[in-house]
Nucleic acid binder design. Structure first.
Lengths: 120, 120
DNA sequence: AGCATATTCAACCATCCGGTTGACCATTGC
DNA sequence: GCAATGGTCAACCGGATGGTTGAATATGCT
């Protein structure tokens, strides 16, 4: 089941779920530990985690009776690529990006232009 | 009513609305012209455009009896920056981005995802 | 004036969403 | 064995969402 843009954006549209992702940015967490950070029931958090997992934004692995949740940032890539298409649609920027791509291929190391492009 | 991450992601979560943004990527359009591209009522499209405007993703200007809609890509910046924070661990998927840009240029106005327009 | 065009409004409907509560598996530890 | 812990499931609730229709409001054309 491949996560679609629909499910990814829908998952990101809720502030609680974004906050959960923010927590998981620090460390993998058990469901109960995630729930402890919010003023809502464990069941509600469990649902939120289900939505995030359904969108591919997190992975859940059950070890013993504890279910561990870890960030899966790859799922954001497709959505991020889609969004950046709207910030960079001007021909000038397109050309600049193409030049960047060429440079990147020739010199696949770090490149200062990458930062400029990643945050339009 | 400043556009929040909530409203932006919520607006992007609907395939019809993403397809509308894809259309506006090429040209400003009147409400009726946007509606002509979809198999749903004009009123429904008008609502979708309202959601997109509420999220700050488009601007609507009424000239005469026609309301023109134009893309407002700046609204994506905040959301894009937020997302970028989670992708930082690994390098941006430049290949996917390049494919997107090339596809966008060869077939402008069409959303990069196939199902956006065919199954709204 | 009178009619056509562009767009919204209002009411309505089915469905989804976010939340709660209480019951229900698992797994762990005494 | 049995109680506590970790987590999900099922039913329910109020409110949002996405869609429809039909009437209403502006504006433009002749």
């Amino acid at each position: 089941m491949s996560p679609s843009l629909d499910t990814v954006f829908q998952a990101l549209a809720d502030p609680t779920r974004r906050a959960i992702l923010g927590l998981l940015l620090e460390d993998d967490m058990a469901v109960t530990d995630v729930a402890a950070e919010f003023e809502m029931s464990l069941a509600a958090i469990s649902k939120h985690l289900g939505v995030l997992a359904g969108a591919g934004l997190i992975a859940q692995e059950k070890r013993g009776r504890v279910k561990w949740c870890k960030l899966e940032p790859d799922a954001l890539r497709e959505a991020s690529v889609w969004m950046q298409g709207f910030g960079q649609f001007e021909p000038v920027n397109l050309d600049a990006f193409e030049r960047f791509l060429v440079a990147e291929r020739l010199d696949p190391g770090d490149s200062p232009e990458a930062d400029a492009l990643s945050q339009p």
